[in-house]
Design a binder for these strands. Structure first.
Lengths: 345, 345
DNA sequence: CTGAAAGCGCTTACAG
DNA sequence: CTGAAAGCGCTTACAG
């Protein structure tokens, strides 16, 4: 590794103090235009880049942001949401000289330890909070740690009790789940099931409430709800249980695409024709949705854009101490071949 | 954020110099057992954790390792390999106090810039090199930057030309591809196609060579090879082209599971029965493989374990300046319902 | 507008 | 075995 130019090298070459170099390069007032330009030219010529660790030590800033994901490592790969979300975050960070520190913890027990370590080591200046839960323990924890955060979706009421709310980046999934449910009702389905993610996650119960309301508005019961952990495995077994019912559903709404694809697999396994005997819908509209058979009707949420927006908000929060909430375009249905008219009874 | 205890606080509380605290906590010789224990107790009582940035500045070490992925962000989520690999890396880092700095760059053009920035900013102490390519430009680049690295799989010969080779963690995929091809031959297939990843990637051409040899040993031609970018989209279109052939294949070997699943989708779309009319195999044995219909025969590569092993090797390389290569258990076939006897001609 | 100096919190020769 | 001090490369009041 060839020796890097330091601020001292630049200062010497420019015949000024290193303090002035720092001011010039950081766009702070109090440097003559002439000196500023000259210092910048010299810095560029020397290929000078400030040392992140030295800056960090001085400014008590790490120039890195964190994402802690609490899902079983084995199954993280199954759900395309996070990779796409991360890609969106990266797109913004790349231009801002920020790094993403990623942590995958198997379960929610070790989660607190990771956040505490991240804070104690000052590894990151702020974090992304995904998969919000009811009474989410991370919110008081992060407040206690004084760690800035942005949440994906709005956390529970809190009634203004918490010190200062975190900025929120929402992508309203309600219109999507309402539309996909209504789409099935319009196709004549009367027995519609919902295979959802973990109840403790806000989005799962929020979506299920929207699902139930839409059914209720049509005078239909929402009694077929199965909770899963978002894995294809549980998606398949939930499907099996639903299809075993005497009064089995003619349509199933799934909480993510992998579970829906596993549902398609199981239905085929049992000799059902799709969508003639059973309609199926997914969530997130992953790449594969288009290419399974029958092509999967899904709800598009755009995790990539969500990542970009969240990154910008978090960066602003860290830099300025506050940031406005952002509302992204709501989720919407993408209709494909996996949904069709209800079978005649 | 409550003020953290610093080394000075510990030194004062213990009535010793901070140098001695540093020695005691870093397990260096020259500290009396008595003092060492006392200092450690006090450090623990004060909940002292050394500042990463201060250490970094002193030791010129970042205590972070990097992974740069050059794939289109839009499609990164489709392939479960990386999330699982990352989860494996994390499992090791968590206990070692290391952080993973992840970078997703859309294309290979910007790749060099990212590595240079990572090196110039001393963001990471070393990197993981995945998806090795022919004449891989990253290898000379990393040597130039003096950046330690571990490669997944063995890079091309090099004939001992490079300064010092990087340690390698291999998971030999040849036995897997040979076995899956032989499996199809044994089932009576004579027209077997291969839908592979980008030719410039070593594993794609290495696997294709193994594929061709296995066919050749059985007196069969390996003329049906289609190159893709690993996306489900190209997996589907490659399948379409193969099925359009007059002398179309009765079996298709795919380079990853998403492409194979898309292949299943397209075959069904065209009214083919699987495996009666067409046998299909995937690669990596992702979670979904088990749950599609028909369940996908695949080649298991265990990205999670690969990540763990690579993390350990990289950590050792950074700490000690060298590390031995590691050979993981080779890939092997997992036979499921998507492969069956060749249709009678 | 500019310079000299202190300080961030560690590690590490150097003396004793 | 232990202490005092320099140094890592920045930023930031403080003087002028």
């Amino acid at each position: 590794m060839k020796r890097k130019a330091t601020i001292n090298d630049v200062a010497k070459a420019a015949g000024v103090s290193k303090g002035l170099v720092s001011f010039a390069l950081n766009d702070r007032p109090g440097v003559s235009a002439e000196n500023r330009d000259r210092i910048r030219d010299i810095a560029q010529a020397l290929d000078y880049r400030p040392s992140v660790s030295a800056r960090s030590l001085s400014t008590r800033t790490s120039y890195a942001l964190g994402l802690v994901i609490a899902r079983d490592p084995e199954i993280l790969g199954a759900d395309p949401f996070f990779p796409s979300f991360i890609a969106g975050v990266e797109r913004v960070f790349l231009h801002e000289g920020r790094a993403l520190v990623l942590s995958v913890v198997g379960d929610e027990q070790h989660e607190a330890t990771v956040y505490r370590t991240l804070a104690a080591d000052a590894r990151v200046d702020g974090v992304f909070l995904t998969d919000l839960r009811h009474d989410d323990p991370r919110i008081p924890l992060l407040h206690e740690l004084g760690m800035p955060a942005v949440t994906l979706g709005r956390p529970e009421g809190g009634a203004g009790s918490e010190p200062r709310p975190f900025p929120v980046v929402t992508l309203d999934d309600t219109p999507g789940i309402v539309a996909v449910t209504q789409h099935l009702i319009d196709l004549g389905h009367r027995r519609i099931a919902h295979v959802i993610g973990p109840h403790r996650m806000l989005h799962a119960s929020r979506r299920n409430a929207a699902f139930a309301q839409t059914l209720a508005a049509a005078g239909l019961p929402a009694d077929l709800v199965v909770e899963t952990d978002f894995t294809a495995e549980q998606g398949a077994s939930a499907t099996g249980r639903l299809l075993d019912l005497a009064d089995r559903p003619t349509a199933i709404v799934y909480g993510n695409d992998p579970m829906a694809i596993a549902g398609i697999g199981l239905a085929h396994e049992r000799g059902l024709r799709l969508p003639d005997d059973l309609s199926i819908t997914g969530f997130d509209d992953s790449e594969l949705a288009r290419y399974v058979y029958p092509a999967l009707t899904s709800v598009r949420t755009d995790p990539l854009r969500w990542g970009e927006a969240a990154a910008r908000v978090l960066l602003q929060l860290v830099a300025e101490g506050s940031a406005a909430d952002v509302d992204l375009e709501p989720a919407r249905v993408v209709t494909r071949a996996s949904t069709g008219p209800a079978p005649r009874a």
